[in-house]
Amino acid sequence: MTIYFYTTGDKYGCFSNFSAHGFELDGVYWPTSEHYFQAQKFAGTPHAEQIATAKTPKDAAKMGRDRKRPLRSDWEKVKDDIMRKAVLKKFQTHPEIRQILLETGTEDIIENSPIDYYWGCGKDGTGKNMLGKILVETRELLRNYPTE
């Protein structure tokens, strides 16, 4: 069986970067992993601070995708590791969702996004599904190196 998720209202909605599972990372409290991820596109600038305080993860995403903001030059090289860091911290911080992730066993996890062909599977299923792959990696890390 493969586990699909997309919206926060789904059975596995806690896997979404929009889920309301905040955490502290780099000395800042982030309301969602989406806030953290989008802000890192502009680390060390006022843009990052603005995104950190965005009202919703949707607002944070919109701000992070605004190409009027100057994207850091190494973004394509670092974005996967930034996502790994955020996802791991989120599941380390919240035991209840860590349990949900661990209970997925060895199943594949797919972000069933019809629009995102990098983090999700895309409309036709040909996307890279990087977020799903990072969730599987995170599950293994948590299984092999319990945080508590």
Results as ranks from 00 to 15, higher is better:
His21Arg: 11
Lys58Ile: 14
Thr32Glu: 02
Ser16Leu: 02
Ala43Trp: 04
Thr106Asn: 14
Leu102His: 05
Arg143Asp: 12
Lys11Ser: 11
Asp74Asn: 13
His21Ser: 08
Phe15Ala: 07
Val78Ala: 07
Leu101Pro: 13
Lys89Tyr: 02
Lys58Tyr: 15
Ser33Ile: 01
Arg72Asp: 04
Trp119Glu: 04
Phe18His: 14
Val87Asp: 00
Thr32Ala: 02
Lys68Arg: 15
Asn112Glu: 11
Val87Ala: 08
Thr138Met: 07
Tyr145Met: 13
Pro114His: 08
His21Thr: 08
Ile51Cys: 11
Met83Ala: 13
Leu142Phe: 06
Glu103His: 11
Val28Asp: 09
Leu141Asp: 13
Thr126Gln: 10
Ala48Arg: 06
Lys128Asn: 13
Leu135Asp: 01
Ile110Phe: 11
Thr106Glu: 15
Pro57Tyr: 00
Ala48Asn: 10
Thr138Ala: 09
Thr32Phe: 00
Lys79Cys: 14
Val87Glu: 02
Gly120Phe: 00
Ala52Ser: 13
Glu96Asn: 12
Phe23Ser: 00
Val28Leu: 07
Ser16Thr: 02
Leu135Ser: 01
Pro46Asp: 13
Lys11Glu: 15
Thr8Ala: 06
Glu111Arg: 04
Ala48Gln: 09
Pro95Ile: 03
Gly122Thr: 10
Pro114Ser: 08
Gln92Ile: 06
Thr147Leu: 04
Asn112Tyr: 10
Ile134Asn: 00
Glu24Trp: 01
Met83Asp: 07
Ala48Leu: 08
Leu88Gln: 08
Glu107Val: 01
His94Asn: 13
Val78Ser: 09
Thr53Cys: 11
Tyr6Lys: 10
Asp74Arg: 04
Asp66Ala: 00
Asp116His: 04
Tyr36His: 05
Pro57Arg: 02
Phe91Val: 04
Phe18Ala: 12
Ile109Ala: 03
Leu142Pro: 06
Ala54His: 09
Gly125Trp: 01
Asn129Thr: 09
Ala20Met: 05
Leu25Cys: 03
Ile110Asn: 14
Leu102Thr: 05
Ser19Lys: 00
Ile3Glu: 05
Lys123Val: 13
Val78Phe: 06
Gly22Leu: 10
Ile82Phe: 02
Lys89Arg: 15
Glu96Ile: 02
Phe15Asp: 07
Arg72Phe: 01
Thr56Trp: 05
Asn144Glu: 15
Tyr29Ala: 10
Tyr12Gly: 01
Val78Arg: 07
Glu76Val: 08
Thr53Ser: 14
Tyr29Phe: 15
His94Phe: 05
Val28Ala: 02
Leu142Ser: 07
His35Ala: 06
Asp108Leu: 09
Ile97Ser: 05
Lys77Trp: 02
Val87Gln: 03
Val28Asn: 07
Pro46Thr: 12
Gly120Lys: 01
Gly132Gln: 04
Ser33Met: 07
Gly64Val: 06
His47Asn: 12
Phe18Pro: 06
Pro46Asn: 07
Lys41Leu: 08
Asp116Val: 02
Pro70Ala: 15
Lys62His: 05
Asp26Glu: 15
Val78Leu: 11
Glu24Pro: 08
Leu142Tyr: 08
Asp108Gly: 11
Thr93Gln: 13
Gln40Trp: 08
Pro57Asn: 08
Arg143Val: 12
Asn112Cys: 12
Glu34Ser: 01
Lys41Asp: 09
Pro146Val: 06
Asp66Pro: 07
Arg98Asn: 06
Trp75Ala: 11
